[in-house]
Every structure is written in C-alpha cells, then in structure tokens.
Amino acid sequence: MGQRYYVDPHRIEALAGQLEEIGSLARSMTEEFLDELAPTVRWPGTEGEFAEKAKPQEQKERQTTKDTMMSIRDALVGITDATLAQVRMMKDTRDRNIEGIEQRNSRIETDGLNGDGGPTGHGRR
C-alpha cells in the first residue's frame, strides 16, 4: 500500500501569509534603500579625473545593487503568489471531490446501489 499524503491548506495559507509579510518588508526595505541611495549619486563628483574614472564603475555597481534588490523582492512575491495559487487549487480539488462523493452517496440512498430503487444486490434472487 502506498504512503499517505496529507496537506493542511490552512497551515500553508498561514505560512504564505508570513511570506507576504516578508515580501512587504522586502518591498519597503528596497524603497528605503533606494531613497537613501539617491543622495549619494554625486559622491564620485561631476568633474575632474577622479569623477571621470570612478563614475562609470559607481553607476554600474549602483544599478547592479538596485537590480539585485528588485529581483529579491520580485522572487518573494512570485513564491508567495504561486504558493497561494497552489493552496486554492488544492482546496478546489478537495471541495470538488467531496461534493462528488456526497452526490453519489445521495444517489445511492435514493436509487439504491443498482440504480433501480430496488435491493442493493446483496440478497439472493
């Protein structure tokens, strides 16, 4: 006999709620970081040899850092959305199957096991 598989959608939803909080925190951290980063844009200067040499590398690092922060945030949001979609799918499947079982049980109670309203087929004829 195969192993049983058990899923607790409510527990997964609670964990997804925590993921949403983490995503929200990552979003606000990214916004804060970018706000704090903005005033430093002129640190290498705008004129002179140092500015000429340092500015391209600084801009590249600045962009890489922004892209990394945004990617982390987007990944967290994607994981959360996918997890919640899976929970909805599990619940829908469970509810559909339970409804199907209830409908069949109702038909058996009404029509009998053979569907003819007669005996359930366990007796002799």
Results as ranks from 00 to 15, higher is better:
P119Q: 00
M89I: 11
N114A: 08
K55P: 00
K91D: 08
W43A: 14
E99M: 09
T93G: 10
G23F: 00
Q18E: 14
V77W: 00
A38N: 14
Q18K: 10
R73Y: 10
R107S: 14
G48H: 02
M70Q: 10
K55W: 00
P119Y: 01
D92K: 07
Q103H: 15
Q63K: 02
T46A: 01
I101M: 12
A54K: 10
R124C: 09
S28I: 15
G100T: 04
E47M: 03
A16G: 07
Q59A: 14
T83E: 01
D116S: 06
E21G: 13
E102M: 13
I79A: 12
A26M: 09
M69K: 00
E13Y: 07
T46L: 02
E21R: 14
M90D: 07
E20V: 02
R88T: 08
G100L: 06
E61I: 10
Q63S: 05
D67C: 09
M90F: 08
G23Y: 02
D67R: 05
L113T: 06
G17V: 07
S71Y: 04
A16L: 04
T65N: 01
E20Q: 08
E99Y: 06
Q57K: 13
R62S: 07
I79T: 09
Q86C: 02
G45E: 06
T110A: 13
T120K: 06
E61F: 03
A38E: 15
R94G: 09
I22S: 04
W43V: 15
I98N: 10
R94D: 15
A82Q: 06
H122M: 13
I108V: 11
Q63V: 03
P39V: 13
T65D: 03
E32Q: 14
R88G: 01
E47Y: 03
G121D: 03
H122S: 14
G121F: 00
D74A: 11
R94L: 14
G78D: 03
I101K: 08
A26F: 08
L84E: 03
L34N: 07
T80K: 09
E58P: 05
A16C: 06
P56T: 01
A51T: 02
G100K: 06
I101Y: 10
L15S: 07
G48I: 08
F33N: 12
E21Y: 08
R124H: 12
G48D: 02
E20R: 11
D81Q: 12
Q103K: 15
Q103A: 15
M89E: 11
R27L: 13
S28G: 12
G45I: 04
G112S: 07
E99P: 01
E31L: 14
E32N: 14
A16T: 00
G78V: 00
P119W: 01
G123F: 13
G48P: 03
T110D: 12
H122P: 03
E49M: 10
E99D: 07
E109Y: 09
T93D: 14
K60L: 05
P39L: 08
L15G: 11
A51P: 01
R42N: 12
D92L: 03
